[in-house]
Amino acid sequence: MQTVANIAVLVAIYALIGSGYVLIYRVSRVLNLAQGELMMLVAYLLFSLATLFGGHPASALAGAVLLSLLVGLVLYVVLMRRMTGELVIAAVLVTIALGILLRGLMVLVWTGQMARPLEKLGWQNSPLALGHGVALSSVAVTTIFVAIAIYVGLFVFFRYTAWGVRMRAVGENPLLAAQRGIKLHVAYAMAWALATFSGGCAGMLLALDSGLDGTMAIIGLKAFPVVLVGGLDSLRGAIVGALIVASAEVLAIQLIDPLVSDVVPFVVLIAMLAVRPWGLFGTEEDIQRV
């Protein structure tokens, strides 16, 4: 039972990080490899805000969420907007370079030491007994609920709101969308803001659960196979991908050898690339093939 709970937590983490990749890719066809650094940045922002508003955890959290949206927006307006129309690989490289830049800046501002935003917020990460001998930390339980809430929110947004539909249209065919009067830059900027927000949530929750240091960026990269398995342009795919990768990882730890768990995601990834390169739920037409 505990194993199932562990899988659920990891699925929630991976799905949240993965949603960041998917949102940007789906709308703008750019693979954002700075996702790990962005989630780390948001987590650090939360840490600083928590230090500032020691007594008001709610305002610190709200501030961090707002800042995460703002960071995504600013990044698009200042940087990624200029890459529209350039080669896809050039845009991807910009995100890699952005990652390097952000990591340098974060070391500069926050040093490489372990930061613990939870303590600054004045909260306790007390364990919750869930019955049947299953226990999880309160932050871990929160992570699961946040992931569900964000995914439900995203589905509703894309299905029922005007801007959601517009963003889907932009993702499918930017030219036609633009001709229908949809403002491409607004749609792209929104995708970046939302992606930074949902990835940032993963970063904040991870930081609240077990602290924050320079390795968080690599965790972002570890979630990368998740979205490839599920399909880069499908939110549903990100959930299924997270489920597959997280289960494989946790079961490898539990049943085989913990050492295997590190390579498992990439083995799944290679198998998927060989069989269905566009992923389980990805759009097949979309893939560039000879």
């Binding site: 910009v94 370079a97 990652g99 390097i100 990591r103 340098g104 500069l108």
Partner: peptide, 11 residues
């Protein structure tokens, strides 16, 4: 700074 500068120049 050195590290960040490399990212910046690349961008």
């Amino acid at each position: 700074i050195n590290y960040a500068a490399f990212g910046l120049v690349m961008i």
